[in-house]
Write a protein that binds this DNA or RNA. Structure first.
Length: 287
DNA sequence: AACCAGGTCATGA
DNA sequence: TCATGACATGGT
């Protein structure tokens, strides 16, 4: 088992906040998923060295997550790939400091301390989010899993089979019956259009990373099924353009309740990261 | 049995 | 521009 030391990071929050699909936590406590096409088995171990922090007045949760911890993992993917996937080199404290100091966001950050926006593969991000509209997370997972099972690379590991998200080419021109079996409903034509426009270069994802946020957004909006919300998700999760602030029903709710008259720009240059905290916070309250 | 789900598109005023 | 319903399917 390989190890990476980390701080200000919480793997569970990061993988279960709904920003990425297909990661699965087994009963053995490990998360299983793919990074850069390679299977990754990973868990976080908190070291028991909280004594220094116990004397001050920080909350229990926060002092727990302030401790250094270790990611233990097995994978062919390199440590640097894993670090960049979880954005571990981003100065988390700096991000938090840049936020406005209102009570709602502060409580959300405290509760979900260590939640990070990850750096997904842009194509996977786009295609899975196209499937997310007017849908619920368990079913999105189901659809994407079925698509992967049918068209993705199979990896055998510890007696089980895992499937990577399919390459664009595998989806492009695949038999319609595979798509139908994924039960995507009206979204199948959106997936089609996304695959088509990326494949033929009508939408050039490689160029997107060098574009400023509003221009990149316009590019993504050319795809049928990609509106403002999904475009912002792709900009945030696939390109780490942090000023993107996806507004879904939950964010709309919390904005109406605590941030009347404001929009994403209120949260500053890392608004998208604030968005993830607010999303988790308001969902945690409702359910 | 209804209602809803990390929305978007096509309509019509 | 802006409100309104349809859209497929299955979870709760």
């Amino acid at each position: 088992m390989k190890k990476i030391k980390v701080k200000d990071f919480n793997l569970d929050h990061t993988l279960s906040c709904g920003q990425v699909f297909r990661w699965h936590k087994h009963t053995d406590g490990f998360w299983y998923g793919f990074i850069d096409g390679e299977l990754v088995k990973i868990k976080q171990v908190f070291l028991d060295r909280g004594d220094k922090l116990r004397s001050n007045n920080r909350s229990k949760e926060q002092s727990l997550s302030l401790r250094n911890s270790t990611l233990e993992y097995a994978s062919k993917a390199s440590a640097s790939k894993i670090k960049s996937y979880f954005n571990l080199s981003l100065d988390y404290r700096k991000v938090i400091k840049s936020f406005p100091k209102d009570k709602t966001l502060s409580m959300a950050i405290k509760k979900y301390w260590g939640l990070r926006v990850i750096k997904q593969d842009p194509i996977e991000c786009l295609l899975t989010y196209v499937l997310s509209s007017q849908n619920n997370i368990p079913r999105i997972n189901k659809m994407v899993n079925e698509l992967s099972r049918r068209l993705g690379k199979k990896v055998k590991f510890e007696g089980k089979e895992y499937f990577a998200f399919p390459k664009l080419k595998a989806i492009d021109g695949c038999s319609k019956h595979h798509i139908n079996a994924c039960r995507m409903g009206f979204r199948d034509k959106y997936l089609d259009d996304a695959v088509k426009k990326i494949s033929n270069g009508e939408v050039n994802l490689k160029k997107l990373s060098n574009m400023c946020c509003p221009v990149a957004r316009e590019e993504l909006l050319k795809i049928k099924g990609v509106g403002p919300k999904i475009a912002d998700c792709v900009l945030l999760f696939g390109f780490n353009k942090y000023e993107a602030f996806p507004v879904d029903v939950w964010i709309e709710r919390i904005m109406k309740k605590y941030y009347k008259g404001k929009d994403g720009s209120y949260f500053g240059v890392y608004a998208g990261i604030a968005q993830e905290y607010l999303y988790m916070y308001i969902r945690g309250q409702k359910i």
